[in-house]
Design a protein around this nucleic acid. Sequence first.
DNA 1: TTCACAATTGTGACCGTGCACACGCACATA
DNA 2: TATGTGCGTGTGCACGGTCACAATTGTGAA
Lengths: 348, 348
Amino acid sequence: MTADFPKGRAPSIRDVARLAEVSHQTVSRVLNEHPSIRDSTRARVRLAMEELQYRPNQAARALSKGRTRTIGVLSASSSQYGPTRCIAAIEDAAREQGYFVDTANLATADAASITGALEHLQDQNVEGLVIIAPQVRVFDVLAGMTLDVPYVSLHSTGGEGADARAADQIAGARLVTRHLIDLGHRDIVHLAGPQDWIEAEARMRGFLDEIDHADLSTHPPILGDWTADFGYFAGQELLRVRDFTAVFAANDEMALGLLHALHDAGLRVPEDVSVVGFDDIPLARHAWPPLTTVHQDFRATGRRALALLLAQMQGQSDHTEDPPVARLVVRASSGAVPGRNTLLPKRY
Amino acid sequence: MTADFPKGRAPSIRDVARLAEVSHQTVSRVLNEHPSIRDSTRARVRLAMEELQYRPNQAARALSKGRTRTIGVLSASSSQYGPTRCIAAIEDAAREQGYFVDTANLATADAASITGALEHLQDQNVEGLVIIAPQVRVFDVLAGMTLDVPYVSLHSTGGEGADARAADQIAGARLVTRHLIDLGHRDIVHLAGPQDWIEAEARMRGFLDEIDHADLSTHPPILGDWTADFGYFAGQELLRVRDFTAVFAANDEMALGLLHALHDAGLRVPEDVSVVGFDDIPLARHAWPPLTTVHQDFRATGRRALALLLAQMQGQSDHTEDPPVARLVVRASSGAVPGRNTLLPKRY
DNA sequence: TTCACAATTGTGACCGTGCACACGCACATA
DNA sequence: TATGTGCGTGTGCACGGTCACAATTGTGAA
């Protein structure tokens, strides 16, 4: 009896029940793996579900149980390498745990679109939020609105949301700055990220801390926008006015743009100038010359963020693994200081 | 009267109704902007909603209306530049249209995880799917399972789902191949993408078409994996055994890895070898030398995919804008052929 | 004033699932 | 035989909206 009645609607639990000649509640129990069901009954119900191609209605389940099993991910800057990897890791982990992931991207980080995206996610009745929006402004907005679900931010200022990463950034920046100092550099320029980004701030802080620690002085950092284009532009400006032997770019993209400008000017790296970056994007090792940088495990960061969120959602204390550490990766773009000379273009 | 009763549950439409002294149906009408509501009533209801911080329950709405207003995005390879941009564009556009976006990432493209992810999305009762999973295998899996919702794939083989992009890839590959031929190159190697990717196939086809068209012969393409690491490796191999004056890499990452290998070997680009890529990632213009490549507008592709899907969901014919065109971007990595010489390392 | 008709509002059922509770039955125990 | 216990299953309602339909009120013309 191949019952195949479409009747407009998708088959419901009661359709299955009728076909299996049991009550709807029994079907529900099979779905939820209730222990006390006779094997023969279970088999009959399973068969009926198969027959009707039954698929549980999440909306009804969510309504009845008061749980959506959905978490929201808010992401600014989602075209950047790091955040992208984090998101992928979060989604993998969430799916593994049976959660759905609802995403909202911010094209621009103005207050209106931030609140808009957060409202949108909450409208979907998410049970928790992961916020990968490292701009300081996002946190201002967060502080100004009450979220009615727990959340984790990947770049906390130490506010209400759990902190998953900030510490690393400072440490990483110190590592790579120290590396340059150890190579003998005394005039190091920092090509920073946008002022309103938490990570940019942290990396700059790490840089300045280490400079201080070594009793050096430095030019005020150049404030960039993370893009390779800006790195290129900044490189051109730097060559015109500054005196330095090394540049610490706050991310790899800017470092690569900077290398481009240096090449254009006929300077050699690292013989004339050392350049280091941050993030260790896959292209860093294939830059010319290969880029010294700070490696971070973005997937681990993403997984950890989700673990933290789930723990928080279940009201548990946060006994998750330690945050991933930033690791210095030395490649060919950093070298010993070229004997205190000023920067005059040389023959290549 | 600041009524603020938490009573465990989130406030419902009936709580609002009670406070505003109307029926629950009136509240529903206000929510849905029904025309015939007295202004004073509407205002009273709005006030009550504000007062209770009422937020409509999507699950209930979805259950009642039979619509979730959610679309699913399946994405393999989500850490790559192009797909990532597409997804962001899709999400923006969807949110604009009042849709929620549910995402699932594929870590690996084996059949099990593909069906798993698709089931996961359909379990959420999505109304439509965008599939950004350019591996041929994905389409095999799709052909083998019946999706119960309309879908659009960004890289169709011309099957059931609407085709949003494939044509471009061939044309783009022809453009850049033609460019090399016009520069006088006769021995061009193609560093292809993984065989099981639709785009890789299309780009290779475009390359071979153009080679044919110019009555040239070519070595069998090298089959890569899109990564810069592979480009580097392939470059080393090529230098050992092959005779060529130009390389067309199927994407920019591999092209950059290849440049690295060429630099290592002391070869000059484009004086000794011309290199071209595909995609025009932001770093392409800052490679050394800046990379000739094919530009595509990923955001437009994403927007178009969503438009197609929505049209399909509403049963409309597909009168959306034309697919974005691939555009040749000539930079410094391609140059005139070096007079038919074989490749011997030269002084830099 | 009365009536037709439109505008506005209310009533009750229903969407698909899960929960609390009740029921029947087999079996062990006294 | 009467009673308690636990397994397997069924009944009815709740979840928070929307829909169809009914009821009430307001308006203008006869």
